[in-house]
Design a protein around this nucleic acid. Structure first.
Length: 360
DNA sequence: AAAAAGAACAACCGCAAAATT
DNA sequence: GAATTTTGCGGTTGTTCTTTT
């Protein structure tokens, strides 16, 4: 016997998400944390399947996501990683914590693929020898010259990296994770009450710039997460006492919320932050949200502090190793300095063997 | 100004692996 | 251990916006 059925397909809504749906999902996530997607539609009343909820959350609503405007650095990373790993977008995304696999995939398909094709074309016209990306797709050397050879090594390497990262996050409080980027809201404590407390910061998901990153002229909701921000603002205005009463209660929270490069004012940022930092429930009567929020925030920061102190035990050798390797963007920078030639399985393997030797 | 073509991106679909009963 | 569901991933499609004709 298996588990009970997921979600019946009858009456399941499809298509773009509305701001209202987003708010419902975000506040549910804020209260319960991600996971157990199956119960999300039932508990929230959203007429969406669990899969759709998960996708919406992980790709767009999750805190700490940077959207649009890929930097040159990111671009290079993606190109190199694609050459190394192939179209394993999730693995690639693990090296770019602020980006989602879907985003990277889209960017690859719409921009980089073409760009590389053009470059290739140019190279070919100049008598270039590379012919490994005819279809504009897989740059991986294995696909053309060394079919399958060393593929498992690469896969293994990626898996090791991901496992290390996961382990590292499990052990770590201080290490910046995708959720704990200094610009971003964070999960301060997942051990208490099984309720990861984090503050949703719509501002950061809207740090995109007005033009392309903002989507299509802002008319389409789906492409404009900052509508959520606006909506929240209105929602907040209706429901609560003036936000200013909260300000100053937790400077760190304020800093988090205001730190994003945003077109929104700091106050607005704080509003969203406060709203979602509270133990928000759509059905709650928020008669005194500001006080409640205030105390919750204090409690939250206290808990966070306690956890930190409590967890400041000396690292084991293994932990040190993990942190060493898994933190440090500069570790990933290596990828950039590696030429595509260097990405042959042998070299790649050697590199990691050496690394492993160094570690042990 | 209108239509057509192209570009960008959000969301869906199907598959495989993991988890659960 | 088998059956079934859930989750995660990658490929693809559909819709919307922008640019060109």
């Amino acid at each position: 016997m298996g588990r009970p059925p997921c979600c019946d397909k009858i009456g399941v809504k499809k298509g773009p998400w509305t701001p209202e749906e987003d708010i419902v999902l975000v506040s549910y996530m804020q209260e319960h944390g991600p996971g157990n997607w199956r119960s999300v539609p039932t508990n929230t009343g959203l007429m969406r399947c669990s899969k759709s909820c998960r996708l919406r959350w992980t790709n767009y609503l999750r805190p700490g996501i940077k959207r649009g405007n890929f930097t040159q650095h990111e671009e290079k990373m993606i190109i190199h990683l694609q050459a190394l790993l192939g179209n394993r977008w999730a693995a690639i995304a693990s090296y770019l914590p602020q980006r989602t696999d879907n985003d990277i995939k889209n960017y690859w398909n719409t921009h980089l693929k073409k760009k590389l094709m053009m470059m290739n074309k140019g190279a070919a016209e100049n008598g270039g020898s590379r012919n490994d990306q005819e279809d504009g797709g897989d740059l991986s050397t294995s696909s053309s010259s060394q079919p399958n050879k060393g593929q498992w090594e690469r896969r293994l390497q990626t898996d090791i990296h991901m496992a290390k990262q996961a382990l590292c996050e499990a052990l770590s409080i201080d290490k910046p994770s995708p959720y704990t980027n200094n610009n971003f809201p964070m999960i301060s404590d997942t051990t208490h009450n099984n309720k990861p407390s984090f503050s949703f910061n719509p501002i950061n998901s809207t740090t995109k710039l007005p033009d392309q990153a903002q989507g299509k002229a802002g008319s389409s909701y789906a492409s404009s997460a900052d509508n959520i921000a606006r909506l929240l603002q209105n929602w907040m205005a209706k429901k609560t006492t003036p936000i200013n009463s909260v300000s100053g209660s937790t400077s760190s929270e304020g800093a988090q919320c205001g730190s994003g490069t945003s077109t929104t004012t700091p106050d607005q940022g704080f509003e969203h932050c406060s709203l979602l930092s509270s133990n928000n429930d759509n059905n709650n009567n928020n008669s005194d949200v500001s006080t409640e929020t205030n105390s919750l925030l204090q409690e939250e920061s206290k808990l966070g502090l306690e956890t930190r102190n409590h967890n400041h035990v000396p690292f084991t050798f293994l932990e040190n190793w993990l942190f060493d390797d898994a933190t440090a963007p500069q570790g990933h920078e290596d990828l950039l300095t590696m030429s595509l030639q260097d990405t042959t399985p042998d070299l790649f393997q050697t590199h990691h063997h050496q690394l492993a030797k160094q570690k042990f």
